[in-house]
Design a protein around this nucleic acid. Structure first.
Lengths: 123, 123
DNA sequence: TACTTATATTAACCTAAACGAATATAATAA
DNA sequence: TTATTATATTCGTTTAGGTTAATATAAGTA
């Protein structure tokens, strides 16, 4: 059970780094990630599962949603350093975080608490 | 120039992690790494070049030898944490370090300062 | 010079892994 | 029940990347 190598493999893909950066902020459902990063549902779901298999994130099912969050491991301190000191000084990941805020605002305004909003805004 | 992603890709392979662990100790030539890890010359050389391209290590040519060492980057502090707190608590990497000591001793005893020693020890 | 040693490069092969499209599953809503 | 929403899975394709064997290069030595 070489968890370390699994984790490092998960960290070697840009999409997964972008997801990790978002989840480091807060728990999110798959659709939040799709919307924020503008990636397909398949892609979001699959990468999240990879990350879960490496025990870098965990999931929680509620109704029809799957909420993912960091599965923090006391021993993997280098991950915090990587995210806070490296990822977050890169423009791409900064923009992702801004887009997340915009998306979450929009979601809260148009609907109470769910992801089931058509992507073209209501009038 | 996304150096971070390049570095993370380099870190996602066990052979390269083993090499990194050794180079974190001291500058080594290719043959030291081949001997210590018991891997082929091609494999050692190629992985070292990958690592060099990601600017994780640097090389110095002296006579017929190529000496590799860490190319430390002030901004990549997570790498120190990864090596010291994670890698070095894993048996495989600990054994590699022991093997390195044994090899370097043997090299120093049998020859003054070079790698050009037949692998079957002299009598 | 020819020979040896150390390292790098090339080529062929093979496996891992990323991707999109389509489909399956499962919960909810009408 | 049927339809909708959210997520997961499967399939086929394609690309990236690891491995070995063979060869090239380049420095040192006899």
């Amino acid at each position: 059970m070489d968890k370390l190598l699994d984790v490092l493999k998960v960290l070697s893909d840009q999409t997964r780094l972008r997801i990790l950066n978002l989840l480091y902020e807060k728990e999110l459902c798959v659709c939040d990630i799709m919307e924020t990063l503008q990636i397909s549902q398949t892609k979001a779901s699959r990468h999240l599962i990879y990350m879960k298999n490496a025990r870098l994130v965990k999931d929680r099912k509620y109704a029809q949603w799957a909420y993912y969050s960091m599965d923090k491991d006391e021993k993997m301190k280098f991950i915090d350093s990587l995210i806070l000191e490296n990822l977050r000084s890169i423009e791409l990941y900064q923009k992702d975080m801004e887009n997340l805020k915009v998306w979450l605002n929009k979601k809260n305004i148009s609907d109470e608490s769910s992801c089931n909003e058509p992507h073209a805004a209501r009038t």
